[in-house]
């Protein structure tokens, strides 16, 4: 397609166009940049509603929502976040894509950094509720929840409850031995040597520990526990 030379354009237009462009650039430069998290977080719509409008792209929508949530609260102090509403978003995101790990990871590793034990417990409790629905994929976050409960909250009974859940549910799922044995060592930490010995013996008798090195280590530990129990009973 042949074009006429630019000199053919009327002179007023040759000047007006760059001026208008300059006006747009000035306007944009003066306008404030968008701020994430400026408005309070609203409750999430139910996953069923979002499924109706995402054209079948539940996985992609879940991932985009997670990034939006992450970017949204990235600039805001977590202390100012409404954790009840945050939880509705995490739940919706997980419901849209139940195989994804991101929302559980965010609950376990990001949102528990808030210096408020009630909010931390809200996140841990959500992980505890969601864990049995897919233990094979979600066990790392349950383990992390137990660690947070013990070390950050200082709530050993809660950590024991979480680790016990992993141990109880692990028989049917491919969960590593160290995660399954976690509650035994937490029982020891809680001073319940007798309980720890019973749990360890049950584990060894269940036949789920197949690695000979691991088995020998656990048998040694059981021996030490029994010695300690005998010593405690003697004193």
């Amino acid at each position: 397609m042949q074009q006429r030379p630019w000199r053919q354009v009327p002179a007023w237009l040759r000047w007006t166009l760059p001026l208008l462009l300059l006006a747009q650039l000035t306007w944009h430069g003066l306008a404030s940049s968008p701020a994430a998290g400026s408005a309070p977080l609203a409750s999430a719509p139910p996953a069923a509603g979002l499924r109706a409008v995402d054209l079948g792209e539940h996985t992609a929508l879940s991932k985009l929502l997670m990034l939006w949530l992450q970017a949204r609260d990235g600039n805001a102090a977590w202390g100012a976040l409404d954790y009840g509403r945050l939880l509705t978003w995490l739940q919706t995101i997980l419901d849209l894509d139940p195989r994804a790990q991101y929302s559980l990871m965010a609950a376990a590793r990001i949102y528990t950094f808030v210096p408020d034990s009630s909010r931390q417990r809200l996140m841990l409790d959500w992980i505890y509720q969601e864990f049995p629905r897919d233990p094979a994929r979600r066990w790392p976050w349950m383990v992390h929840a137990a660690i947070v409960a013990k070390h950050r909250l200082g709530d050993l009974p809660l950590a024991l409850k979480y680790s016990q859940t992993i141990s109880d549910i692990s028989g049917k799922w491919a969960i590593p031995g160290w995660a399954r044995q976690m509650h035994i060592f937490l029982l020891q930490d809680a001073g319940d040597n007798a309980g720890a010995a019973v749990a360890l013996r049950a584990l060894l008798e269940s036949g789920t520990v197949s690695n000979p090195v691991e088995k020998r280590f656990l048998e040694d530990e059981l021996g030490k526990m029994r010695e300690r129990n005998t010593g405690d009973a003697g004193s």
């Binding site: 992609a60 991932k63 992450q70 970017a71 991101y102």
Partner: peptide, 20 residues
């Protein structure tokens, strides 16, 4: 751009985005 934002599951985020 998405890979720079996601903390975990980077490949999954990229693939889902590209697919859609």
């Amino acid at each position: 751009f998405l890979s720079a934002l996601a903390i975990i599951e980077t490949r999954e985020f990229q693939t889902a985005f590209l697919g859609v």
